[in-house]
């Protein structure tokens, strides 16, 4: 069974910017169809790990395995072709293109081009608001709607794993709730998601498992439900 092999595995990962090492001996596993959180405070190294997984950074040491295959050092566009979809921090949309063109860019590669039409319909079914606004420039939509475009665009590539970096960044609290609900409901699409967030409580509420980072080191990992009740986590991150 393929399920025995984790979809994504990070082993003994060290990452540095120049001489400054910021991630130390990180280990992490994301199973098929799991929704996994990676949380921690400012500058703890969450985005750095995600950047390494999506090919934007080359780690100093250790390995990143996608279905058992080593992927560290592969360029981002090639990783997209292997099914790694990255919803980056700040969304990185094409502001002067229509919503629909933004979504269609998600199906740029051959692996998903053939099913572009059906996938577009699925995305619109998932985000009816984007259907209404499909002709408008992406740059003219609200922050929450732009986040939906970014997620929809990633779905268009038929990903095997979805990496999300701070989807709640810059959004009003009410909109954050809404985006988290959207991410939670992605499981109905049988997706595998690795979610990076500062918003620890929100993440622990919607994920299956989570990893907690501090200063580039893994400090706790476990079932999200359990972490919500863990005293150390409560004190450090939940303000209780």
């Amino acid at each position: 069974m393929t399920n025995q092999l984790p979809l994504l595995e990070v082993r003994d990962l060290d990452i540095a910017y120049g001489d400054v090492q910021v991630v130390f001996a990180m280990n992490m596993v994301v199973g098929q169809q799991e929704l996994v959180g990676l949380v921690g405070g400012n500058g703890s190294g969450k985005s750095t790990i995600l950047r390494a997984v999506s090919g934007m950074l080359k780690p100093k040491r250790g390995s990143i395995l996608l279905q058992g295959q080593e992927i560290s050092g592969i360029s981002p566009h090639q990783l997209t072709d292997l099914g790694v979809a990255h919803v980056p921090m700040g969304r990185q949309l094409f502001p002067a293109m229509s919503v629909e063109e933004n979504l269609e860019m998600g199906a740029y590669l051959k692996r998903s081009k053939a099913n572009k039409k059906q996938n577009l319909e699925k995305v619109y079914a998932f985000f009816p608001r984007l259907l209404e606004k499909r002709k408008l420039f992406a740059g003219s939509l609200s922050g929450g709607e732009q986040q939906m475009i970014a997620i929809g665009r990633a779905l268009m590539s038929e990903p095997t794993i979805l990496l999300m970096d701070e989807p709640s960044l810059g959004l009003a609290p009410k909109v954050v709730q809404e985006v988290m609900q959207v991410i939670h409901s992605l499981r109905t699409l049988h997706l595998t998601v690795l979610l990076v967030e500062q918003n620890v409580r929100q993440v622990l509420k919607i994920t299956d498992r989570a990893y907690v980072l501090e200063h580039g080191k893994l400090v706790i990992e476990g079932q999200s439900q359990g972490l919500l009740e863990n005293d150390a986590v409560k004190r450090a991150y939940l303000g209780l």
Partner: peptide, 24 residues
């Protein structure tokens, strides 16, 4: 054309384009 769209996408947001699989 598809190429044209990839060019416009790269112009508007290189990182965004690269993450969609465009060889920028």
């Amino acid at each position: 054309t598809e190429l044209g769209r990839a060019i416009r996408a790269t112009a508007q947001n290189r990182l965004g384009a690269e993450l969609q699989g465009v060889d920028t």
